[in-house]
């Protein structure tokens, strides 16, 4: 199947998923309101803290708002496309329903990821935009044409990196049937808590961890190209995030093929 056709089939599946998602509109508005309350409640508290302490790791509140906002832009897109499939991979595998992705003339990974969309991703992405605007309002970012242009590849790279990392964790489900514990560590702890703040406040080992498992390239390193921060050895690393994304994706593609290839499935 040609790339072009695969691309159009992909978007067809996404459209179908969006239509399906819209059928469960029930608490939709309420859920989005809650997401916003959680995001901005958290931001408010961080602002209050920094009103007292002024700086964290040399970063101001405006810097932090940008950091969080940049991450949410990527995270929102990830949540929209990939969250459902990856978060619920365990049940897909243990119930044996996974096989339905394996009997079409389309790569299994595409079918797997295109099972459902999560419309909350739109809200999250929107929150990211608001936070970036907020950061701009505090003077943390001075926008130039170059920086505006940089935003798209950085966010796109962020999406791919986030997807790759979580997909890699999800692959462990092929082997152990239960990716929950590792998923919890990576997603909630590393992915959410640690990434709220600049990585330089953590010790070297943790920084290294979040560089090799390239979560740091989603927002931390790229932030240096937008904010006016003191120069560090890694100030330009953010510009390489698209490359990191490609490398991460290649790795996870290979991991996926190996894992799904040796997965026996249920039944015999």
């Amino acid at each position: 199947m040609s790339g072009v056709r695969l691309w159009s089939v992909f978007w067809m599946l996404v459209r179908y998923n969006v239509r399906s998602s819209l059928m469960y509109r029930g608490n939709f508005v309420m859920q989005q309101v809650l997401t916003l309350v959680a995001q901005f409640g958290q931001l408010y508290l961080i602002a209050a803290v920094l009103a007292q302490f002024h700086l964290i790791g040399g970063w101001t509140f405006g810097d932090l708002a940008f950091l969080i906002g940049l991450r949410l832009l990527a995270h929102g897109i990830y949540v929209f496309f990939c969250w459902m499939a990856i978060t619920f991979v365990d049940s897909d595998l243990t119930s044996g329903a996974f096989i339905r992705h394996q009997v079409r003339p389309i790569p299994t990974l595409v079918l797997f990821l295109c099972q459902a969309t999560n419309l909350s991703g739109v809200t999250i992405f929107g929150s990211g935009i608001v936070m970036v605007i907020l950061a701009t309002a505090t003077g943390a970012v001075h926008w130039t044409l170059a920086r505006v242009g940089l935003l798209v590849p950085v966010v796109a790279a962020g999406v791919i990196i986030e997807m790759s990392v979580f997909l890699a964790v999800a692959c462990t489900a092929f082997w152990t049937g239960n990716s929950s514990p590792l998923f919890g560590v990576v997603y909630e702890t590393l992915g959410e808590q640690f990434l709220l703040y600049p990585l330089n406040i953590y010790n070297l080992t943790v920084q290294l961890l979040l560089t090799v498992v390239p979560l740091g390239f989603i927002s931390f390193y790229p932030a240096y190209s937008f904010l006016s921060l003191p120069a560090e050895p890694w100030s330009h690393w953010g510009l390489y995030s698209p490359l990191v994304a490609i490398a991460a994706f290649t790795l996870v593609w290979w991991l996926w093929r190996t894992s799904s290839g040796s997965y026996q499935g249920t039944g015999s």
Binding site: S20, S21, M23, Y24, N27, Q31, L34, T35, M84, A85, T87, F88, Q115, A116, N118, S120, S180, P181, F183, G184, Y187, E188
Partner: peptide, 15 residues
């Protein structure tokens, strides 16, 4: 999956 409320996803992480 869609029937899972966005709110209940935390149970997924309940290792």
């Amino acid at each position: 999956y869609i029937a899972f409320a966005w709110a209940e996803w935390r149970t997924r992480l309940a290792y």
